[in-house]
Design a protein around this nucleic acid. Structure first.
Length: 898
RNA sequence: GGGCUGUUGGCUCAGCUGGUUAGAGCGCUGCGUUCACAUCGCAGAGGUCGCUGGUUCGAAUCCAGCACAGCCCACCA
């Protein structure tokens, strides 16, 4: 790891640590610390790559420039991504976590229009004026979202920040469009598209949502156009959109439908407009629905459009872009589509063509942005051919070059990619990337300039000079699909592109797997011929509990408010605590509370250790002597050091396997349960002993140092605050200018036998404490305890037992068992309730006998000893011996008490 | 219509390739504050792991079916 040169690096912020402060107050520290990290260049990978460097590259899933961060962002950015980035950086990898924002097309335009409406009439603005206003607002919003990202603590390289509408990024999008056009992947055609009456634009299939709604299903009779033999059945269709009857150009039946087969080719009259249309046969018709006859309206229905294409039917557009019925609509002309529906029903009824109406619950398409019910319209539009692009992207995942976590999402990816449809890429709005296509007004030629060429002014075909640029802009996702390579300088072969492409991980919510992830894979493979990242980590949605959040707190659903109140560390921690990969999660008040308390615990551990060091003026950490080989260390010290190494190994494994929720859980278990509650308490005794104080203090410092490193990826602020202090107090420690670039602990050797003995000790301690309590021995009141069973293994730990239980311990008991003692015979000398004591022993004896029975049954079970692996059998045998011993001891104790 | 995921103590969830007495946080009960922390410590209660079958010496874990919940996809008018 390149450390910034001394002298060029700004000093860390003046300490805000106040040891009189019992609780950590996050907001005081965080911005100063972040600014320092940023200014010191910790987040920028070393300028010159070292030969054979390992790298970690991750793109921030660019948030919308006009938005505020929500909990989903906080989970992704501050929870998973920054954790990964910081961890890889600490492992010495050249780490690039690249920030940026998305111009957010339609959403941003709506936001700004709303703002503008407060002060002026947008309608009076020209396109250029409006875009000028858009840019003004961009400059207003952008710093706001960047500030929020900094508040989360994300270790982003701000020297490489990008915005999708930056001029150079616009140029890159233009190049991409031109290349794709020349490669034949883009085409313009009259097709049916989703039109939004509110937003006045088209949108893609992905932006179409479905809601369940109940409408009236109208049964309408279409009279025969010609005289038919007596007994010919009436043609009746069922529709929820009777206003579109006027645009019908056929009636379709299923080719195998016995009721209608023989009438295919005959003609009926479309009600209201009296148009003769044919009865056609098409597989798309469901014979079980309604009467089995379908009105075909190619101009206003997706399925019908496709049927129309297959049968060469004419297309009638009777509804215009505002939702009004046009002159094609006959007697419905001029009405809005909703009013037209009512009117159509009335007319049909009057004419005796309406047979009946019944309610039907069905799916209705709506626009995801404004929830307006879609209006399918046939328009001339730009599309991208996707089938060919999807193929290599499918292969990349299938052959494992890209792996998706969690794995089951791969199935969903394949399903979508294998049925991919062409992408409607144009939007009829003003804010976005313009389409580099000009239309010659004289000869209708489509003019697309060459790559790198200026806007065309002359038609290459007719030499006319009246060229008009396509007024539409590109779908927002069109540019974000290019993000992993355009941010690195593509199409130029920049050093950044060579060094940082392909990236490593793409982390985002599973809800944009298709919108973004799949398209990045396709475009990366298309433009660079290489995957954009090798791992896709998909997180779930965060819900914020209703019942438990919010009463005493303000708007706690906002991550920014939460950070301001509880700190980014606590929020980050709470968001990933107890969550498994890809699962939706709930951020509850309880989780947040636990996170705050853990941060506070860390703070107070730090306070205790630092005070200890100050008091002892303990400034020499012998860095050349690894602590586990230090003969001055007592068993408690060697135990916590061994546990520290075990934990380092475990946490490394968990992060490597993307098990972040478990990483946080294991971290808490160690820091709180083992370091604070067990070792710290034991150390208090050692610190009072002049012979052992030095070793204890050094152990505290060493373990704190490890703990801060291990916790840094999830709690960057509090850990670095403490580390800076610790290293100031311990100048010779293995330190670094900041934890951000400090080394992640490599696990060293552990002492498994000692850990086992300590586990037994903890058991003994718990039993004694329990007995003291049930026997009514007051805390602080001395008691004497005799240990029975095979105590040889924990004899050396007697001082620890005495310390932790405030009891005098004598070791009785015996020889024999090779196993670590778990049975304990306890005699409390103080006065206690004999009856209660006996009841307890009886209860324990019952439990012990039950366990003994289970062990015996398991070992006696046919096949077990023969078929189970010998390690399992041995384990069971050892357990049986222990249980026998325990039962025997308890029986003895019971006899003695009685 | 197709598919995916989930169902574990009062609540929110862990439980990796099947093997100690199924864990955690919150909540609950009892006890305890002189010097890191009451955002604290100690101890404890509480679960037939949705149901039914199957595989196995052994199933919360693997398989099948079912029930319920949530989500995604889809041209059911």
């Amino acid at each position: 790891m390149d450390e910034p040169k001394a002298g060029t690096m700004p000093p860390p912020p003046a300490t805000v640590l106040d040891f009189d402060e019992k609780n950590f107050r996050p907001s005081v520290v965080e911005t100063e610390l972040y600014d320092w990290w940023d200014r010191a260049g910790f987040f920028t990978p070393p300028a010159t790559p070292s030969p054979g460097e390992k790298k970690f590259v991750m793109m921030l899933p660019l948030p919308n420039v006009t938005g505020d961060l929500h909990m989903g962002h906080a989970l992704g950015f501050g929870g998973y991504e920054d954790l990964m980035a910081r961890w890889h950086r600490m492992r010495g990898e050249a780490t690039l976590y690249l920030p940026g924002t998305d111009h957010a097309g339609i959403i941003a335009q709506i936001v700004v229009e709303r703002e503008l409406a407060k002060e002026m009439d947008k309608k009076g603005l020209t396109r250029e004026q409006f875009l000028g206003e858009m840019w003004k607002w961009m400059r207003h919003y952008q710093p706001r979202i960047y500030r929020q990202l900094r508040m989360l603590g994300c270790s982003l390289d701000w020297s490489r920040v990008h915005f999708t509408m930056d001029p150079d990024m616009q140029q890159r999008v233009r190049t991409h469009f031109i290349r794709q056009y020349k490669r034949g992947h883009l085409y313009r055609a009259d097709r049916i598209v989703h039109w939004c009456l509110t937003c006045q634009t088209t949108y893609s299939d992905l932006e179409l949502l479905h809601i369940e709604r109940t409408d009236q299903l109208s049964y309408v009779r279409y009279p025969w156009a010609d005289a038919m033999p007596a007994g010919t059945p009436d043609v009746v269709i069922a529709t929820t959109r009777p206003e579109t009857i006027v645009a019908d150009t056929a009636v379709a039946v299923h080719p195998d439908d016995e009721r209608w087969k023989r009438y295919v080719g005959r003609e009926v009259l479309v009600p209201m407009v009296e148009r003769r249309v044919k009865i056609i046969a098409d597989e798309a018709v469901d014979p079980k629905f309604g009467t089995g006859a379908l009105k075909v309206t190619p101009g206003h229905d997706q399925t019908d459009f496709e049927i129309g294409q297959r049968h060469g039917l004419p297309i009638i557009s009777a509804i215009d872009k505002n939702g009004s019925m046009n002159s094609q609509a006959g007697m419905l002309a001029g009405e809005h589509r909703d009013a037209a529906r009512t009117k159509a029903v009335a007319i049909l009824e009057r004419k005796g063509l309406l047979l009946k109406q019944e309610p039907i619950t069905h799916a209705v398409g709506i626009h995801d942005r404004c929830e307006t019910v879609e209006e399918p319209l046939v328009m001339r539009q730009w599309f991208m051919k996707m089938k060919e692009l999807a193929k290599p992207a499918i292969d990349a995942v299938r052959n494992g070059k890209i792996q998706i976590v969690p794995k089951y999402q791969e199935k969903i990816y394949f399903e979508w990619m294998e049925n991919i449809r062409d992408w409607a890429i144009a939007r009829q709005i003003w804010w976005g990337h313009s389409i580099p296509v000009w239309y010659c007004q004289d000869c209708d030629e489509i003019v697309v300039p060459d790559e790198g060429a200026p806007d065309p002014t002359v038609c290459p075909k007719c030499r006319g000079t009246d060229l008009k640029q396509d007024p539409d802009v590109l779908d927002t996702w069109f540019s974000s699909a290019l993000w992993p390579h355009t941010t690195l300088g593509w199409p130029e072969q920049t050093p950044d592109l060579r060094r940082f492409y392909p990236g490593t991980v793409l982390e985002t919510g599973y809800d944009i797997l298709f919108f973004w992830v799949a398209r990045m894979i396709m475009m990366g493979l298309e433009n660079i011929e290489d995957i954009p990242f090798s791992t896709v980590y998909l997180h779930g949605l965060v819900r914020v509990g209703k019942t438990k959040m919010g009463k005493s707190k303000g708007n706690v659903t906002s991550p920014i408010a939460t950070i301001e109140q509880d700190g980014a560390d606590a929020l980050r921690y709470a968001l990933i605590y107890g969550v498994s990969a890809g699962a939706d999660s709930q951020l509850s008040e309880g989780k947040l509370q636990n996170a705050k308390e853990f941060a506070n615990k860390l703070w107070n551990i730090g306070r205790f250790v630092l005070r200890t060091l100050e008091a002892k003026n303990q400034s020499q950490w012998p860095s050349d002597r690894s602590p586990e080989n230090d003969p001055a260390l007592g068993p408690a010290e060697r135990w916590i050091l061994s546990r520290t190494e075990a934990t380092a190994g475990e946490l490394t494994r968990l992060i490597e396997q993307y098990l972040f929720g478990e990483y946080v859980g294991a971290l808490q278990q160690f820091v709180w349960g083992e370091f604070a509650d067990t070792y710290l308490e034991l150390s208090k005794q050692s610190l009072r002993d002049p012979v052992r104080a030095d070793a204890a203090a050094r152990t505290l410092a060493y373990v704190l140092d490890r703990v801060l490193r291990l916790a840094h990826p999830v709690m960057p602020f509090i850990t670095d605050t403490l580390a800076l202090q610790l290293w100031r107090a311990m100048p010779t420690a293995d330190r670094s200018p900041s934890l951000v670039i400090a080394k992640w602990p490599e696990p060293r050797s552990r002492d498994q036998a000692l850990e086992d003995r300590f586990a037994a000790l903890i058991d003994v301690v718990r039993t004694i404490r329990n007995l003291r309590q049930t026997s009514g021995v007051r805390p602080g009141q001395k008691a004497s305890v005799a240990l029975g069973g095979d105590v040889s293994a924990i004899r050396e730990l007697g001082g620890a037992i005495a310390h932790l239980t405030q009891s005098e311990v004598t070791f009785g008991g015996g020889a024999g068992q090779a196993t670590v003692v778990r049975a304990v015979e306890v005699r409390l000398a103080a006065e206690h309730d004999v009856a209660e004591h006996r009841a307890r022993i009886e209860r324990e004896l019952l439990e012990a006998k039950d366990l003994l029975r289970r062990s015996r049954e398991l070992l006696a079970r046919p096949g077990f000893v023969e078929k189970a692996p010998s390690s399992v059998v041995d384990n069971e045998k050892a357990k049986l011996a222990e249980r026998e011993e325990r039962a025997r001891l308890l029986e003895g104790e019971l006899k003695r008490v009685t």
